[in-house]
Design a protein around this nucleic acid. Sequence first.
DNA 1: GAGAATCATATGCTATATGATTCTTGCAAT
DNA 2: ATTGCAAGAATCATATAGCATATGATTCTC
Lengths: 229, 229
Amino acid sequence: MSSLLPEPSGPGRLSSRMVSIDVYGQLATAILRNDIPPASRVNINAVAVSLGVSATPVREALARLESDGLVTQLHLKGYRTTDLLTQREIRDLWQFRMLIEPYGAGHAATAASPDQIAALEHEINSFTSAPTGSDFDSYQDFSDHDARLHGLILEASGNAIITRAFERTHCHLHAFRLAYNSSAGSATVDEHIAIVDHISARDAAGAAEAMMEHLANSRDRLLPLAKEG
Amino acid sequence: MSSLLPEPSGPGRLSSRMVSIDVYGQLATAILRNDIPPASRVNINAVAVSLGVSATPVREALARLESDGLVTQLHLKGYRTTDLLTQREIRDLWQFRMLIEPYGAGHAATAASPDQIAALEHEINSFTSAPTGSDFDSYQDFSDHDARLHGLILEASGNAIITRAFERTHCHLHAFRLAYNSSAGSATVDEHIAIVDHISARDAAGAAEAMMEHLANSRDRLLPLAKEG
DNA sequence: GAGAATCATATGCTATATGATTCTTGCAAT
DNA sequence: ATTGCAAGAATCATATAGCATATGATTCTC
């Protein structure tokens, strides 16, 4: 653990009524960066002191992180960070994505509004190449871009339930945690462009196929990084 | 609100350190029974007093219920129960199920262990007919059976990620909340039997097809009960 | 009747108490 | 000397109580 935050909150307190979201973000980042290693206990009080808040908002943040799959709670034994995904789990997760994302891309091609098409192209244009730096932050930026793009495509398909189910897998979080440069290749950029091009051209079959290929490739990029299981 | 529990906890306190799970269950039941109507505010303190506990375990339960989609939190405005699903959302949710459950049934037919087959058949045998009574509890029993069966099938497919994504949709909760006798027809029983028969016979294509039909039928049984949207 | 001021209510947090778990220490037995 | 076990101490999770502030409704003023 130890000092998750540069400055806890200092004597000049912040508004003190908007802490919980921040605690959530700080804790999530700490887990993703492996500042809190996988499968290790999370001491609620230590986190509270480290972040300069009390236990209650930490508890709330941990409850949310549990539903994100980043921690698990053991009754009367507190919270532990979850293990990294195994190869088996990566395969299972990507199989899930292969069931819903090609469907989403195909329907996005027929159902997306002009605004949604524009949003997709704007997202594509914001990352025309893989990050050049090698720092944590630029990889995280790219991972966020990746997550946004896949989310936008499902959103454009018009099915909010499926979009939400996808978002709740937090596949990008898990992939990022496994290796935070895993999605940052130029191949990823090219594949994204191909998918959005098919959607813009209203080519449902092509969009679904491009998405399926992209998922197969990203899975194969990720698998060697995971432990067997 | 008003009296969610027959007896709060009284002066003879219960074990006092296993409360939160119970609070969760009591609240979930209260929402499902429409004791707390859809789209209404949930007063944390009132719930706490009603259940004879303090605010903290109620907050934890609400955090979990939020990830279940039964309540939503608005900052500084507290929690509200969510609306009932609209026809559109039912359709979207069942579309999601149609993407993953036929896949699950098909893979269960090839991948299920003998123990898992036995568990499926045991579950089938525990409800060979629709409930005869008209009370809340027997409908809930049947709804639970339905949820267990669909969960077992996905589990037998061997993909834990998909199983979890399915469980998190809480489709049975939402269906039950919409109308608690919606899944209790004898047609449902017959369709369940057909699916499990195909799985037991290791007939993947037949299992997938039977599941798809079952989902289409259950959706059509449910749709008239939902509001347009 | 519209806008400003006031007040009640409920939220979100802090501080604290309680009890379970876990670690440490000491002693006995092999 | 080393291992096994038990008792006590320390730690930590969970729950309670209470406080400060934001929200929303009511009342007052113009």
